[in-house]
Structures are given as structure tokens and as C-alpha cells.
């Protein structure tokens, strides 16, 4: 099946292409890295993409070596065929002021309240409202159109909170809509909920091919499914980068290669290399098992190799190219 997974993929054969990519996974598995790589892959395919974070960590700026992101949706990267990545770090205070301006034309009063600390206070005592505002801003960007009626962004990629929190954050809109009986906040909640449930929205799950992360990924699926968001792909990240062909590794073969390259060898070095290779073999065998467990989820599967020497913009580019090539 040669779909360009994630790039032009839909969540089902009859569904439209994905416009809202929500990237989640257990803490530290590579959500930010994968979200950035995906945004780049989409930009390289000619799309105008908004890459968003909502936890105030400046995680995107860090991986992409850009200045700290603000609310302004600045262009941060250029794609290959006219595409571009814009970045936004949504913060609840600004989103709230935005909201009060749009729905009540109270932007000025709201800014005054901010100086009093009232906005901070409100978003603190009502974390659900805070989450709706954060996600609401993303949906606003998704709906925004230019004068010709075309969407401003072809796609939005959200570097979402980790699995443990994402259900609460994405579910907040539904809860608020239930809680509040009338008024703009209810409509806002309902709008966000309907966009989450739209077939052009997809929740991608990033995992490492290790015991705990795979187990937790599989266990998280029922709760995430109950959010009513279609699943996109599972991304196995940081996997062993070079598959070892079948067959025994012999010290003689290694010694020959080192010889041919004019490198000195020693008995201990060859033994250590053989030992290290057995470790890699073990890891790859484990990965094969984990891949099989993930397959039981029945979702498209994409894989990104472990890169060495730290992740920077160049590395994210490389991972993005791999996502684009995943055909």
C-alpha cells in the first residue's frame, strides 16, 4: 500500500485529506521532534502549514533553532516547493483577550484586566476554560480564510501535550459546552468539539519501540478513541537506524573490513564489536516484537530512525524528508 502516509493521507478512504494533525504520545518519546518533522514534510510538499504549541515551553523554537515563538504566526521555515511553516506558541492569556475581543468586543477592557492579574486569575481557577481557549485558537487558525475564500493554512500541526494530559485538554471543549448552558462560551466549546470530530482531523501517536512506551501507547487508545477524534498514524520513533541482515556476525568479517580500510585491529576490539553487535541484534529483535504489537491497533504505521549527535534543525529536516519519502 503506497500511500504517502500522513502527508496526503486521509483518516478513511471516503474522508478528506487531513488538515489538523494532532501529535501526542508519552512524555519524551519525540512528539515535538515528530510534529516539527511533519510540518516540514508538509511544507516540502508545497503546503502552508501552521506549527503550534500550547504548553508555553518554547519546545519548537528549541528544536528548530528559531527565535522564541509568539502569538504572531511568523514564518519560520521555507519548504521546497513554495510551502512554508509558520509557528505559534499559544498562551491562554492572549487567547482569552482574543476571545473577549472577538465575541464581546471587550479587548480593551480585557487588556486592562490583564494588568490587574485578573486574566491570569481566571485561567488559573478554571483550567477547563483555559484548555478550550488554547485549542480554540488553533481551530480559529484552521477556519481562517483569505479574501478569495481559501483557507489560509493548508494544514495545522499541533505539538500536543503528552498522552496523560491530552484527553483532558482536548476533552475540555466538550465539558465546557456541557457545563455552560448558553452564550458564546458554549458555542465556542461546541465549535471546537465539532472540529475535533471532523474527519479531516487526525490524532497521531508517537512511541518508542520499547516495552513501556509501546504498552502505554496501546493502553491509551481506548480513552483517546472516546474523544471521538479519528486516528492518523502511529509513529515508531528513534528506532535502530541500520537493520542487521540475517546471519551470524563473525570477528573475521569485521577484521577483513577494518583491514581493507587500512585500520588497525585488535582481539579485544573485535570481541567488543561483536558483543556490541549482539546488543544491536537484541534491540532489533525486540523492536520487531513491538512493531507486531503496534500492528494490532490496525492503524497506519510510520517509522523514524534514531539520529545521532543531537537533534537540530538539520536533523529535523532529515526526519521530515523520511516522512515525505514514506511511500
Amino acid at each position: 500500500m503506497l500511500v504517502r502516509v500522513m502527508i496526503e493521507q486521509s483518516t478513511s478512504p471516503s474522508a478528506p485529506p487531513i488538515r489538523w494533525h494532532i501529535v501526542t504520545g508519552k512524555g519524551g518519546v519525540g512528539k515535538t521532534t515528530v510534529a516539527s518533522a511533519l510540518a516540514l514534510a508538509l511544507a516540502d510538499a508545497g503546503k502552508k502549514v501552521l506549527l503550534a504549541e500550547i504548553e508555553g515551553r518554547q519546545a519548537l523554537a528549541r528544536v528548530l533553532d528559531t527565535a522564541p515563538l509568539g502569538y504572531g504566526e511568523e514564518k519560520i521555515l521555507i519548504g521546497k516547493t513554495g510551502g512554508a511553516v509558520h509557528g505559534i506558541a499559544v498562551d491562554a492569556e492572549t487567547a482569552l483577550i482574543d476571545y473577549l475581543e472577538i465575541f464581546y468586543s471587550m479587548g480593551k477592557a480585557a487588556r486592562g484586566l490583564r494588568r490587574l492579574g485578573a486574566i491570569d486569575f481566571a485561567t488559573t481557577i478554571a483550567p477547563g476554560v483555559r484548555d478550550v481557549l488554547l485549542i480554540g485558537k488553533i481551530t480559529e487558525a484552521l477556519r481562517r480564510r483569505d479574501n478569495a475564500g481559501e483557507y489560509i493554512y493548508d494544514a495545522v500541526v499541533l505539538d500536543a501535550p503528552p498522552t496523560g494530559r491530552v484527553a483532558r485538554v482536548l476533552g475540555a471543549a466538550h465539558e465546557v459546552a456541557q457545563l455552560v448552558k448558553i452564550g458564546p462560551l458554549k458555542r465556542h466549546g461546541e465549535l471546537v468539539t465539532s472540529m475535533l470530530a471532523d474527519p479531516s482531523t487526525a490524532l497521531h501517536l508517537v512511541t518508542l519501540l520499547e516495552d513501556m512506551p509501546v504498552r502505554e501507547t496501546i493502553e491509551s487508545v481506548p480513552e483517546l478513541r472516546s474523544l471521538g477524534i479519528a486516528f492518523g498514524s502511529v509513529i515508531g520513533n528513534r528506532t535502530s537506524p541500520v537493520p542487521l541482515p540475517a546471519g551470524r556476525i563473525t570477528q573475521v568479517d569485521i577484521a577483513r573490513a577494518l583491514d581493507a580500510a587500512g585500520l588497525p585491529t585488535s582481539r579485544t576490539m573485535l570481541a567488543s564489536l561483536a558483543e556490541q553487535t549482539r546488543g544491536h541484534r537484541q534491540r532489533q529483535d525486540n523492536e520487531t516484537e513491538h512493531r507486531a504489537s503496534l500492528e494490532t491497533l490496525g492503524l497506519p504505521y510510520v517509522e523514524l530512525p534514531q539520529l545521532f549527535g543531537g537533534i537540530n534543525r538539520a536533523a529535523v529536516r532529515e526526519l521530515g524528508t523520511r516522512l515525505g519519502d514514506f511511500a
Binding site: G247, T250, D253, A260
Partner: peptide, 9 residues
Amino acid sequence: ASSPVAAAA
């Protein structure tokens, strides 16, 4: 390397 396993290793 002539051996594929050694090359990968």
C-alpha cells in the same frame, strides 16, 4: 566491507 552483516555492524 564485503560482508553485509559486518557492514551494518
